[in-house]
Amino acid sequence: MSIDTQLPDETVHVASAISDEVVIELASVNKWYGEFHVLKDINLAVNKGERIVICGPSGSGKSTMIRCINRLEEHQAGDIIVNGTEMGTNIKNIDAIRRDVGMVFQQFNLFPHLSVLENCTLAPIWVKNMPKAEAEKIAMEYLERVKIPEQAGKYPGQLSGGQQQRVAIARSLCMSPTIMLFDEPTSALDPEMISEVLDVMVGLAETGMTMLVVTHEMGFAKRVADRVIFMDQGEIVEQNTPDEFFTNPKSDRTKLFLSQILAH
């Protein structure tokens, strides 16, 4: 795990762009896998433009929590409201929320049978009924943003891990989401590729995107996060600004966790 990944100008925190509007609200969310209580009474409100880093030991429920936000996992109790839409069992609501929420996975999950450009245009063409030329123009803009426009014609299998993850970010952005979820986006990458992906994510933060990022990259958290959330055993144990969180952790579990990951 690399804690001190080199980011450009690491000391300066990316300017905050938080507004008062609450865009994600989790109220008493509970989830079980059979007997196993994986999310215990989660309460969380995320404001528009807010950047949240979520950390915690393996198996603490980080992935499960953010996957509930776009209904890749179903919660059994409590309410989840995204951009004013209540996530019930209504398929229309779920579709609406998924259109608004982008997600980047640890394993990239690019479509191997489509070229990089086709990966980016698939959803705009079929979900937004966008003309192909327009979708391609937008896709090229985002591929430039993630600094790989020259790879547009290649297939995912021909790219490095870092390049694939940047394509995955561009693919999500092509749907113009208002919220982006990241589930350990750099955990499957070799150290030298981590910073190229984190750079892109910092750039995205600078545009004022609402971001929820599960990561152990503490350098990224210090530089970008407005709030760090620590989860353990299905609970939100502690949340604070990065400064307070790293220098003055309150609970013993947080201290233990920090000492473990910083000891590397």
Partner: peptide, 27 residues
């Protein structure tokens, strides 16, 4: 076809029927 493919497709807003047709079946 790994489950991750379906999840990526859903997270882009593609409905299950489109996911089947555009992502799962071709692979």
């Amino acid at each position: 076809v790994s489950h991750g493919q379906t999840e990526a497709s859903y997270s882009l807003g593609l409905k299950p029927s489109w996911t089947l047709r555009l992502v799962v079946i071709p692979q």
